[in-house]
Every structure is written in structure tokens, then in C-alpha cells.
Design a protein around this nucleic acid. Structure first.
Ligand SMILES: [Mn+2]
Ligand SMILES: [Mn+2]
Ligand SMILES: [Mn+2]
Ligand SMILES: [Mn+2]
Lengths: 254, 254
DNA sequence: GAAAGAAGTTCGGCAGGCCTAATAATATAT
DNA sequence: ATATATTATTAGGCCTGCCGAACTTCTTTC
């Protein structure tokens, strides 16, 4: 039984950098890493040796650098943490992109699984709750700019209530507009209502967080609707059309 | 001109620990620090030497340990960051105290001034906005426990609206119940409306964040109403009664 | 006031991370 | 094919931060 998985912050950043470089170029060179992380080439060589020892990268002197299966998994985890935190800072705290990325890239090595989960849920909640939502966040921006202005609350609530009622009416009887996940367009968000898929597929989906109640954002849809890239709980997933067909969802209006 | 103030995370934690030990005992012993930070005595000696070199602690071998003026200032800053972040985790993300303290004590070395400010404002906003408030946070708790339950939104908004209206009516014509800061009780929060103080006092108040619009929480009031301990923007302040008399505030109902 | 016990210090060592300078390998251009 | 430029590695150092072990200096107790 192997304990102590813990990578250092520094090594996680190297993994993260390699992951991103792979995503945009074919071959990874030590130079790319050193540019990205702003460290000397010597430091990169050292880090690569550490990572190779831990079986997270395939590396031999002067050879190309690739991630092992395990290294890829860990790298994705780091990236996920980074993105979740950055999104929180940008979307909720209205921090500018650059500053958000900086603090996220340090926090990503600190937050526990449980707290990361909370950040995801909170960001979701704020964006989805009729009492939160974009208006409310705009209100926060106003609050920041005008030291603590809290005027017109009544009107704000009034409008939110009217909108919630309208949405309910339009959604017919019980719920908001329902659809198959496969019918959504990039940028749209929905809440999973039911999984009608069976066996392996449903298992894989469930494992990645596509469960009833989960908020799903569609990121990209390929020309013929296959595959569909989505984001759930910070995970980027690529679903085949058949898989997406098996997911019933209810659209969330912005 | 001295650049590079930056203390390391480790040294900041030593300062923080010393500050807390001073607050609860008279004398600070290396042993207390080593217990608190869970490091060996040898490490404490080393850290104290670094801090003494930087003129942040008064330290000579075998002698008692105290903070210099500058060291005290920095320690308070660290504690402030810690508390602001912990409060955010506890009050907003509903993280349990212990976990919140742990992550706060790591983040405190990472967040920029600007982002700390955002955390303060956001926590304030959530607690003060009628669309936020305790009900809304409870809603978040429910959302966490029941994977994404968002039922009864309409009713929730309806209630919030009614409450906001009631509060407005009760507050008479224009605003909520207005009062001098000196009249409030521990635990109460208010928003500063006007500073009628002049000169030094008003300057000091303004510098510490007691400005129109700021949210102030009363922490303790001494028997005869002097001094009054308050918290503003994460700062703990102790006001004399005369000072508090010069602050007009509007009470925030919970 | 001496001996025992507790607290504090010094020393040497180790690990992680980073650097520069020198050297080696590879890629490119002529 | 050779010279040149680019890229990567090695070697040697520096700094922070931690440790255990040995030693020193209080503090208490009898
Ligand atoms: Mn990072
Ligand atoms: Mn990152
Ligand atoms: Mn800390
Ligand atoms: Mn702390």
C-alpha cells in the first residue's frame, strides 16, 4: 500500500505546464517549459528527473518529453483545480483574469478536495440561483465600486421574483424547458434531470459527475454533433452523441 | 529606499504565532512557538534569528521574546488576512472551522491586497444584501447536501421581498434605524452613514476603514461603554466613547 | 547551594528549488 | 561535410527550512 502521493507545488506546476504545452504543440521541449515557468533550463532538467523518477513523465536526456498515464491524470487534476479556482475569482469575485490566474495557480496546491468541491458548488449556486445570478453579481460589482451601496434592493428583488415567475410559466407546468443534452448549443448550461443510459456509459458518466442535479455546460459541439465537449464540476469531458442522447436535462436560462 | 519587504510564508507564521501567544500569556517562550507550529526547538531558534535580523522581534539568546513595533504591525496584518479568509470559508462557503483555519493559514501568504479586499467585500455583500443574507446561505447549504436542489425559489424570493419591504417601512421614511455607533450592542452590525468627528480622530478612523458605507461589527463594549471594540474590513479597532459618538450608523438587521 | 530537570542553543546534515557557467548534443545552414 | 547556432545537461553553489544529537544555560527542588 503506497502512501504519500503528495507532489510539491513546484512539481505540480511542471506537470501543469507540460500538459498545456502538449495541448498546443506536438513536441514538448525543455525550452518551452522554462519559458512558461520562467525558470532556467537547468531547473527544468532537475524537475524532469524528479518527475521521471516518480514515473510521471517519460524522459531520457535529449529525448522528447511525454506524460505517462499517471502523469497525465495528475496534470489534469491540477488544471482542474486551477480552472475551478480561477472561475470562482473571475465569475464570483469579479477579479480580472490575470490576477485570478496568478492566485489560482498558487491556491491550486493548497485547497483540499472538500474545499475545492465547495468552490465548485458555490460558483454554480451563485450562477444558478434566482437570488444570485448575473444581476446579483453585477450588484456586487456596484457594491465594490461605490463603497457599500445597497440601494434599490426592493426593486432588484421585485424584478428577480417576476423573472422567476415568468420562467416557471414558460417552462409549462412543472419545470424549465427540458431537452436532451445532445440538443444544446455551446455556451448553454443545463441541469441533469435523468440518465437513461445503461451499463458502462452511465457508469462512466456518473463517475465523472454527470448525475441528476449536476450542472453541465456545453463547451463545443463538433459539426455533426459528435463529439460534444462539456464541463461538469470542473471536469472537461468529451461525450459521443449516443452518450449525450441518454442525458435528460433542463436548460438554465442566463 | 528599501524594496523587498516580502517575508516568507514560514516567517509570517512565526510572527503570527508569537502574536497569538503574546495575546494569551505574558511571556513568550520558544517552547510555546514550537508547540504551536509543530516544529523542533532548533527550528524556532533559527527562525527567531532571521526575524531578529530583520528587526521584527527583539531577541537575544535565553532572553524573552517580544515583537518590535514593525513586527507587531506585520503580525497583525497576517492575522487579519487569516481571519478574513477564515470568515469567508466559514460564513460563505460553510466550511467547518478547523478546515477553514487550515486553508486560511496557507492562503494568507498568497492573496494580494486587492484580492483580500474582494474577499472582505464579498463576505460583507453576501451577509448584507437582501438577496443574500442568512436565508440564501442556508440555501447554499441545502444545495450542497442535496446535489443541486433549487426548489421553491419563487417562495424564497417572495419572502425576501416581503422582508425587505417590511424593513423599509419600519425604518420610517428613508432608511433603516439610525443610531450613533456608541449605542450598539456586541454582535450588532451597522453601516456607517456619516462621520461627524473632526481632525485627528476622524483621520484615524478613516485610515482604518471607518468611512461612510463601511460595514462595522461591534465586538465588545466595556462596562461603561468605553472602549468599544469593533471590526471593520477585517481590522480590529478599539474606539473611545467620544470617537464612537462621532460615527452615525444605520443598523443592519440580520 | 548542589543536583536534577526543563528549556534553549549550536552543529552538522538533508531535501527542495533555484541559479550561473561550462560543457555536450543536436539541428541548421552553407 | 563542416561550421554555427540552438538547446540540453552537468557541475558546483546558494538559500530556506526543517531535523536530531550534543551541549549550555536557566529553574526548581530538596
Ligand atoms: Mn500552480
Ligand atoms: Mn495553475
Ligand atoms: Mn500561515
Ligand atoms: Mn494564519
Amino acid at each position: 500500500m503506497e502512501m504519500a502521493k503528495g507532489l510539491t507545488a513546484s512539481l505540480e506546476d511542471y506537470l501543469e505546464a507540460i500538459y498545456h504545452i502538449i495541448a498546443e504543440k506536438e513536441a514538448v521541449r525543455a525550452k518551452d517549459i522554462s519559458r512558461r515557468l520562467k525558470v532556467s533550463g537547468a531547473s527544468v532538467t532537475g524537475a524532469l528527473r524528479s518527475l521521471a523518477e516518480k514515473r510521471l513523465v517519460n524522459y531520457a536526456p535529449y529525448d522528447v518529453i511525454t506524460l505517462t498515464a499517471e502523469g497525465g491524470r495528475l496534470a489534469k487534476e491540477v488544471v482542474r483545480r486551477h480552472e475551478v479556482l480561477r472561475d470562482f475569482f473571475v465569475k464570483v469575485l469579479a477579479v480580472e483574469e490575470k490576477a485570478a490566474n496568478e492566485v489560482a495557480c498558487q491556491m491550486e496546491h493548497i485547497v483540499s478536495k472538500e474545499i475545492l468541491e465547495r468552490f465548485i458548488q458555490f460558483t454554480e449556486f451563485v450562477e444558478v440561483c434566482p437570488r444570485g445570478g448575473s444581476k446579483w453579481i453585477a450588484g456586487f460589482g456596484y457594491y465594490c465600486d461605490h463603497t457599500g451601496a445597497m440601494e434599490n434592493c426592493e426593486r432588484c428583488l421585485q424584478l428577480a421574483l417576476e423573472e422567476a415567475r415568468k420562467a416557471k410559466r414558460e417552462g409549462g407546468h412543472e419545470m424549465a424547458r427540458s431537452a436532451k443534452l445532445s440538443e444544446l448549443k455551446p455556451g448553454q448550461r443545463c441541469r441533469v434531470v435523468k440518465l437513461s443510459a445503461r451499463g458502462e456509459t452511465s457508469k462512466r458518466l456518473a463517475q465523472m459527475g454527470v448525475t441528476p442535479g449536476a450542472v453541465v455546460e456545453v463547451e463545443r459541439v463538433a459539426p455533426l454533433g459528435d463529439p460534444i465537449d462539456i464541463k461538469v464540476k470542473g471536469y472537461h469531458l468529451s461525450l459521443r452523441k449516443e452518450e449525450a442522447l441518454g442525458v435528460e436535462a433542463e436548460v438554465i436560462e442566463p
